[in-house]
Design a protein around this nucleic acid. Structure first.
Lengths: 302, 302
DNA sequence: GGCTGGTATGCCTGACTGTCATGGAGCCCT
DNA sequence: AGGGCTCCATGACAGTCAGGCATACCAGCC
C-alpha cells in the first residue's frame, strides 16, 4: 500500500498542530477521520509514525522523515495547481511566524525597511504560540520564526535536526502601571510593592505561568483581566484596571495614561527575541529578511 | 478537486508510453481505468492535458507542466518509501536509456571505465526504441538517452523545452557479408552488387524503412530473416543466410565467418550516435557518465 | 469496406473515506 | 481519591469513487 495525498496532508497538519483533534478542526474533518488517516499512514508505511502522549501527539523519527518528503510532494502539487491556474510560481516569498507581541513594532518596521530596499521580496506572516511556531517550522509551513525565550535559554524542542537559533535582541521586562497610581511615582518600584495588586494577564494556559504577571511577585497574583491584545491590555492599564508586564520594545507605543517602570529587588527578568529556522541552505530572500530584522532589532536596544 | 497520486502516476506513464492502452498494461490497469484517470485529471485541473490523436496521445503544454510537478511529487513519495524501508536514498545513480545496438560495445566499455574511475556512481540502463526513449526523457523516468540519428538530423520531437543533444560519434554504415561469398572478395562492394541479395533485417515496423537493409539498394530487398539481436544477425550472416548492415562500432565483435565491407556508389550512409537530455542543471554523476561516454566514443572512431 | 489500432462510456461491484456515537486512558484540580 | 477535562481509538454505517467488463465509436490502412 501507499500513502495517499490526503494522508500526507493530514500528517503535515498533525505535525503542525500537535494533536489529532486540532488537525481535524483545521482541515474541516472529524477527529475520527484524522485518527483513521493516521492509522492508514502507519499501516501503509509499516512503522509507528506518531507518539501518542497525553495532551497531544509528536512525530517519531520515522514520522519526521516521512514528513520531510510529504512536504516536497504537497508543495509540488500545490505548485502545479498554481502554475496551471496561470499564477506566478511563488518566487521568493518567505513565510514568517511570530509570537504575538513581535508583531507590534519590530516586525512592521523591519518589513517597511525591507520593502524599501528589496521591494520584490514577498513576506507573509502568521502569529502563533511558541510551540505552534516550532511545529510549523518542522512542518515546513513557515520558513522563519520569531520567538521569545526566557532563561534558561534551552532548545525549544528535542527533535532532530536541532533548530538553528539567532538572538535578535536581549531585553529586560518592564512593568506598565497607570500614570496616576502610586507605583508610577518613581522610575522603578520595589518587588515587594507588587504584592496585593490587580494584574492583567495574557490568556492563561495551564502549562505556562501566566504571562503578564511579574514572575516572582510576592503573594498570590490576583488576575482580574485577561486579554490577548497588547493594545487592550495597555488601555486596561490606562483605565486603572490593573498592571501588567510589557517588553521594552513597546515603549514607543504606550498610550497616554500608562507609565513604564522598572522593577528592583528581584532577579533581572531577561527575555530574548530569537530567530529560529531549520538548518540547511537559506534562500536569498530569507537572508535578506534576517538582515532587516537584525538591523531593526539593533536600532531599538532593549 | 485535486489530482490524486495515482492520477499523477498514470499521467507519467501515459507521457512515457505515448498511449492510454500502453500505460494501462504497464500499470496493470485496464484501458478504461486509465481513460477515466485521464479524464479525472483534466476535470481536476480544468484543462485539456492530452492530445488524443489517432495512434496515440501526446501531452499538451498544460499536461507537460503538470507532468513536471507530478514527477517531483512521485519522486518524493518514492524517496520517502525508500528511506522508511532503510534503503540508501538513491544518491548519484543515473538512469540511462539506450537504443538497442548501443548496448553492444560503447555502453559496457564506458561503464567499465566509469566503474574504474568513479566506483560510487550507480548506473541503470534500459533499452527501448527512440520515441520511447524521448518520451521517457520527458517523463523524467530516465536522465540520459543514447540515441541513433540518421540524416537529416532533426530534433526528435517538437515539444518544449527542446532536448539538448550532444553528438557522441558520427559513423558510416558497413555491410556484413559471409566470409566466403563473392561480396567478401574486396574491401568494398559496389551498390549495384546489392541487387538480388538475401537480407537479414531488424524487426520491421510499418513506419520505418527496415533496419538492416542498405538504404537505396537497387531493386526490392528480399528479406529472408528478421532478428532483433545483433549476435543472431551476425551468426545468420556467418551461416550464409543473408547479408545485413552493421554500425562500425561492432567491428571488434564480428564472429568468424563474417566480413565487414564498405559500399561504394551510393550516398554515404552516415549515422550519428547522439546523447540527449532535458535542458537544465546536470547532476555531477551524469556529467561523469557523459565524460566516460565521450571518451569511449572518441576511442573507437567510426 | 473490413481490419486494426486507438479512446470513451454505461453498468456494476468492492473498497475506501468520511460521519456519528461511544469507549478508554491520562492529567489536573479540588 | 475522585470528578471532569481533553485527548485518541473503534464499531457501525453511508456515500462516493475507483476499478473491471463489455461495448460503442473513431481514424487510418490495406
Amino acid at each position: 500500500m501507499e500513502p495517499s495525498l490526503t494522508g500526507l496532508r493530514v500528517l503535515r497538519e498533525i505535525a503542525e498542530r500537535g494533536s489529532f483533534t486540532a488537525a481535524a478542526t483545521e482541515l474541516g474533518y472529524t477527529q475520527s477521520a484524522v485518527s483513521r488517516q493516521a492509522a492508514a499512514l502507519e499501516r501503509a508505511t509499516g512503522q509507528r509514525l506518531f507518539d501518542r502522549q497525553a495532551g497531544g501527539v509528536t512525530l517519531t523519527a520515522a514520522g519526521l522523515t516521512l514528513l520531510r518528503h510529504a512536504v516536497v510532494a504537497l508543495d509540488a502539487v500545490a505548485a502545479a495547481d498554481r502554475e496551471l491556474k496561470g499564477l506566478p510560481p511563488e518566487r521568493g516569498t518567505v513565510r514568517l511566524g511570530t509570537f504575538p507581541s513581535a508583531g507590534v513594532l519590530i516586525l512592521p518596521r523591519a518589513l517597511a525597511a525591507l520593502r524599501r530596499t528589496h521591494p520584490r521580496i514577498g513576506v507573509t506572516t502568521r502569529e502563533a504560540t511558541t510551540p505552534a511556531l516550532v511545529r510549523a517550522l518542522r512542518a515546513r509551513t513557515i520558513d522563519l520564526a520569531i520567538l521569545a525565550s526566557r532563561p534558561p535559554h534551552r532548545p525549544l524542542d528535542d527533535q532532530a535536526p536541532p533548530l538553528e537559533y539567532l538572538t535578535l535582541s536581549e531585553t529586560t521586562l518592564l512593568l506598565a502601571v497607570p500614570a496616576g497610581s502610586a507605583l508610577a511615582a518613581e522610575d522603578a518600584v520595589e518587588l515587594e510593592a507588587l504584592a496585593d495588586q490587580d494584574w492583567i494577564a495574557g490568556p492563561s494556559s495551564a502549562a505556562e505561568p501566566a504571562m503578564g504577571v511579574w514572575p516572582g511577585a510576592p503573594g498570590r497574583p490576583r488576575i482580574v483581566h485577561t486579554a490577548r491584545d497588547w493594545l487592550t491590555k495597555l488601555h486596561l492599564v490606562a483605565a486603572g484596571c490593573g498592571i501588567t508586564t510589557v517588553p521594552p520594545g513597546l515603549a514607543d507605543a504606550v498610550p497616554p495614561g500608562v507609565r513604564l517602570v522598572e522593577v528592583q529587588g528581584g532577579p533581572a527578568e531577561r527575555r530574548r527575541v530569537v530567530l529560529a529556522r531549520l538548518p540547511g541552505p537559506c534562500p536569498p530572500a530569507a537572508t535578506e529578511i534576517i538582515r532587516a530584522l537584525r538591523q531593526e532589532a539593533a536600532r531599538q536596544p532593549g
